[in-house]
Design a protein around this nucleic acid. Structure first.
Ligand code: MN
Ligand code: MN
Ligand code: ZN
Ligand code: ZN
Lengths: 168, 168
DNA sequence: GAGCTTATCACCAATCATTGTTGTTTGACA
DNA sequence: TGTCAAACAACAATGATTGGTGATAAGCTC
């Protein structure tokens, strides 16, 4: 039950393992650890955030390995690498469900918006020879934590809460 | 070269000069040069691109000064600093006309889309405590130059192209 | 216009996310 | 088990951007 809905649109670690082997890649403990960190993760973690989570399991894993594996997963189409203007790439294991994002200007938290916007295309007279592949909508604002009237908050730290703990 | 329509929605260098003075800032030859580079500039230049253009007039201007001035203009609301995922901030002197962007995945060229999309808002049940301020739509694709299989020798356009025409 | 104050300047070093290098280790397959 | 390229950890380097710092010059008084 935990993570059932969250992982609806993403491969399991076993499937990723198999996909890696099938494409001639080697499956290491480090990579499997990264798969587990990503599975059902709805926080759009940065490479550093994945690194921190992975290190609690595999203490010696290097940040380079994390970057390598994340971008390999992105090349394979198993995750998406997003640039949402927060200063670091964010990684999204949900690639099966086209969706958009709501980004907190203050702490960088990212929320999924599973909405389809109609009429989201480039007007023909504006195309001017471009071959358009896709559109991303990014909503910006302040999250509940960063919005509070009390300017008390320390650095809200886009931390990685364990997937599935927050019920919605 | 600089047309009426291009500068329709941006301040003149004289207006920027006045705005700087009025806010207690000093107006230097370097800053005025940057104002001129920006005026009517529809290329969404990076700081480096502004730097290169400015240096043809003021050879000794420093890149730091360019960054400083650009972000001061952005703070004053006279230009916009955009992160469009091209690896560098892009600066847009058009701040009066809300519009969206079409970005070339290959060369990073940015084209304005002066379209208003209806229904571009966060569904109430998805807001979840966020205070939403705005939405940006970024279309991605390939521009005419980057799309052609055969290289067209007739478009130097030395503005924002990736340097280093790799031959041999 | 001369002097004063302080913003701005050019130059240089540092930061931060990310990528390159290298020599060693390890997974996959025979 | 041996072979060997792939992957690893450690570390150096990159590229965009930002932080000092002493010198310069804008915008004031007088
Ligand atoms: Mn997402
Ligand atoms: Mn624009
Ligand atoms: Zn926030
Ligand atoms: Zn292009």
């Amino acid at each position: 039950m935990i993570g059932d809905k969250l992982s609806i649109a993403m491969r399991t670690t076993d499937e990723l393992t198999e996909a890696f082997r099938a494409s001639g890649r080697k499956v290491t403990a480090q990579r499997q650890c990264i798969f587990r960190v990503l599975q059902g993760n709805v926080n759009h973690p940065s490479a550093e955030a994945v690194y921190d989570a992975a290190r609690t399991e595999v203490e010696t894993i290097s940040l380079k390995t994390v970057y390598q594996t994340l971008y390999e997963l992105a090349e394979m189409g198993e995750i998406a690498a997003l640039d949402l203007g927060t200063g670091m790439a964010r990684f999204d294991p949900n690639v099966e469900e086209t969706h958009h994002h709501l980004v907190c200007r203050s702490c960088g938290k990212v929320r999924d918006l599973t909405v389809t916007f109609d009429g989201l295309s480039v007007p023909p007279d504006e195309v001017q020879g471009y071959e358009v592949n896709g559109a991303e909508v990014v909503f910006r604002g302040l999250c509940e934590d960063c919005r509070l009237p009390r300017p008390d908050p320390q650095h809200p730290s886009a931390a990685m809460e364990p997937a599935g703990t927050t019920r919605s």
